[in-house]
C-alpha cells in the first residue's frame, strides 16, 4: 500500500525531515508511527499526501508513483486517503452532517447516495444525535469522531491519522482508537502517528520508530519504547 525507497527530505534551511527512509506497509496493516516531536512523523504524512516533495527517493502510494503524479491528479490521490488530524480540521460553518457530506460531494457522489451514506457512517461513529450540530457545539472527542467519519465515508484503501488522540482525554481516546481498529478490520490500511505510549503498548501492533528523520525500529507487535530501553521496563 505504501512503499518508501531511500526517501530523504531536507527543508529549505537545511533542516532534515527524513533521511534515507525505506519501508513497506502492506494492504490491510495497522501501523503506529512513534518518535519524539521533530523526528519526521509529520513529514512522512505530508509526503504520503504529496503536500511535500521528497528531496530524494521514490514513494509509491496505492500503486501510484508520487514522483510522476501530476499536480492535477493530486486531488484524485487524496480521495483514496482518509485523513484524521490532531486539530480535527472540520469546516467550522458546516454542520456535522455537511462536513461528512462534503467528502462525498467532492467525489461527485449522487445526492441520493449521500443521503444514505452519511447517516450510516454517523451512526457507526455514534453521532446520530449530533447530526445538525456545528463543530464548536460538540466536544473534542465528538469532533474527532466526525473527522474519522469524514475520512472513512468514502471507504478509502488508506487512512492516515496524525496524533488523532493528541487533543482529547484518555477515555475518549480509547473510543477513537477502537474506531480506527474497526475501520482497519474492513480491510483499510491504517497509519497512526502518535505520542500515546499507553495506547501503543496496549494494542501491540506494528511499530515504526523514527528518530531525527531515520527509521530506528520496525517491530511487529511492538511497544512504544525500544525493548532495550534504559528504564528496562519491557526488556
Amino acid at each position: 500500500m505504501i512503499v518508501f525507497e531511500n526517501v530523504s527530505k531536507t527543508y529549505d534551511l537545511g533542516v532534515v525531515g527524513l533521511q534515507d527512509f525505506t519501508c513497506h506497509v502492506g494492504k490491510g496493516e495497522f501501523v503506529f508511527l512513534v518518535g519524539p516531536s521533530g523526528s519526521g512523523k509529520s513529514t512522512l504524512i505530508k509526503l504520503i499526501l504529496k503536500e511535500l516533495e521528497p528531496t530524494e527517493g521514490r514513494i509509491l502510494v496505492a500503486g501510484r508513483n508520487l514522483g510522476t503524479l501530476t499536480q492535477r491528479k493530486v486531488p484524485l490521490l487524496r480521495r483514496n486517503i482518509g485523513c484524521v488530524f490532531q486539530d480535527f480540521k472540520l469546516l467550522p460553518n458546516k454542520t456535522v452532517y455537511e462536513n461528512v457530506a462534503y467528502a462525498l460531494e467532492v467525489v461527485g457522489e449522487p445526492r441520493r447516495m449521500i443521503r444514505r451514506k452519511v447517516p450510516e457512517i454517523l451512526s457507526l461513529v455514534g453521532l446520530s444525535e449530533k447530526t445538525n450540530s456545528l463543530p464548536h457545539e460538540i466536544s473534542g472527542g465528538e469532533q474527532q469522531r466526525v473527522s474519522v467519519a469524514r475520512a472513512f465515508v468514502n471507504h478509502p484503501p488508506l487512512l492516515l491519522a496524525d496524533e488523532p488522540t493528541g487533543n482529547i482525554d484518555p477515555e475518549t481516546a480509547v473510543g477513537i482508537m477502537q474506531l480506527l481498529v474497526r475501520i482497519n478490520r474492513t480491510g483499510t490500511t491504517v497509519v497512526v502517528a502518535t505520542h500515546d505510549r499507553e495506547m501503543v503498548n496496549r494494542m501491540r501492533r506494528r511499530v515504526l520508530q523514527l528518530d531525527a528523520g531515520r527509521l530506528v525500529r520496525d517491530e511487529r507487535r511492538g511497544s512504544y519504547d525500544q525493548p532495550t530501553d534504559e528504564l528496562g521496563e519491557e526488556a
Binding site: P75, L77, R78, K89, A103, V106, R150
Partner: peptide, 16 residues
C-alpha cells in the same frame, strides 16, 4: 484560507 486548505485535503479539485 483554512476552509480552502481542508477542501484540498479532502481531495477537492481546484475548480470544485
Amino acid at each position: 484560507r483554512r476552509e480552502v486548505e481542508i477542501m484540498r485535503l479532502v481531495g477537492a479539485t481546484n475548480w470544485f
